[in-house]
């Protein structure tokens, strides 16, 4: 067992729906991790999954819950969890200081907790200049930082972030990742994101949703392998652009992209021999091909491409 705070997400035949349409149906899931990422296409059910875990949506059937993996205790949203929505949140007509004070009065030991024990977090999140500003004067990213701080002030065991990296530049992304990493020994995280490059570096477990159902879940490398069985790197080809175009045309159920002079080829069904034979026909200069482990970015790209093809066929 890791010495970091870990949670187990458990689902048993859980489903929720609006107006008779089921929008999330999980089947059976048991996933333990420290930083768990929720991935999937737009509308896959990531936000619904988070709201359901927070007990905000009444289930049609089954249950979805989180447990402290270190102690086995069932986590209650109001006691153990914090949540930062995609848009962040601060009341428009009160100052950030008043908003943080409100949160501290409600969930922290004292109203001025944020200026004492929480001062370091204000520094890290660069919130001091924002304290006198009103909610309506803040950008989306600033509101997210405020709500992130408010969430941390409640001393949660499990912090749920909905699309925290959306719209952040490289520097801010890096800073937020650091904050999550620094706190991960004591807090487990559930992070929904489209940014697979970030998720790959941050998360130890991934749960992929597809059209309201769980596609796969597990350790990041296993999920990548599940979504993308074979990943090849092709190097030393005479005309990489031409080869990429021909690969794309001939292997529609694959994801091909060029990185400098090399080509990366992700596929679930293509064998090494079949691919090598095709490359020899197109490129007679003796291009080299080697199989590598797929990254989560490659795997999700292939997954989304296949999903798009499916929907076009339908």
């Amino acid at each position: 067992m890791s010495n970091r705070q870990q949670v187990t997400i458990e689902a048993e035949g859980f489903s929720v729906g609006y107006d008779g349409n089921v929008v999330l149906s999980t089947g059976k899931v048991e996933l333990t991790g420290n930083v768990i990422a929720l991935a999937g296409h737009n509308g896959a059910g990531k936000s619904t999954f988070m709201k359901a875990l927070l007990g905000l949506l009444p289930p049609e059937s089954g249950q979805l819950r989180a447990r402290n993996a270190n102690t086995g205790e069932l986590l209650r949203p109001e006691r153990h969890m914090a949540f930062c929505p995609e848009t962040g949140s601060v009341f428009s007509d009160i100052t950030v200081k008043e908003y943080l004070k409100l949160w501290c009065r409600l969930k922290a030991p004292r109203g001025n907790y944020f200026q004492q024990e929480g001062a370091e977090l204000l520094e890290v999140l660069e919130l001091y200049p924002l304290l006198p500003k009103k909610g309506r004067e803040l950008s989306k990213g600033q509101k997210q930082r405020v709500q992130t701080a408010a969430g941390f002030f409640t001393n949660p065991l499990f912090f749920l972030f909905d699309e925290p990296f959306d719209g952040l530049d490289v520097q801010r992304t890096h800073e937020l990742m650091n904050i999550i990493r620094e706190r991960s020994p004591n807090i487990a995280f559930l992070v929904s994101s489209h940014r697979m490059d970030v998720v790959e570096r941050l998360a130890d477990r991934v749960l992929v949703l597809q059209e309201g159902k769980v596609k796969t879940y597990g350790p990041t490398n296993e999920v990548s392998r599940h979504l993308c069985e074979r990943m090849f790197v092709i190097e030393d080809c005479s005309a990489p652009e031409i080869l990429r175009e021909k690969l794309e045309a001939n292997f529609p159920e694959s994801f091909v992209y060029q990185l400098g002079e090399s080509i990366r080829f992700a596929s679930s069904g293509t064998s090494q021999e079949e691919l090598l034979g095709f490359i020899r026909q197109v490129d007679t200069n003796g291009a080299r091909m080697s199989e590598v482990s797929p990254t989560l970015t490659d795997a999700m790209s292939l997954h989304l491409r296949l999903l798009k093809q499916d929907s076009e066929i339908k």
């Binding site: 949203p77 109001e78 914090a82 949540f83 929505p85 949140s89 009341f91 428009s92 409600l106 509101k143």
Partner: peptide, 14 residues
Amino acid sequence: RSGALLPMVAAMGK
């Protein structure tokens, strides 16, 4: 309107 509804409901309990 402020986006605080869900975090607050989650934090306080419905």
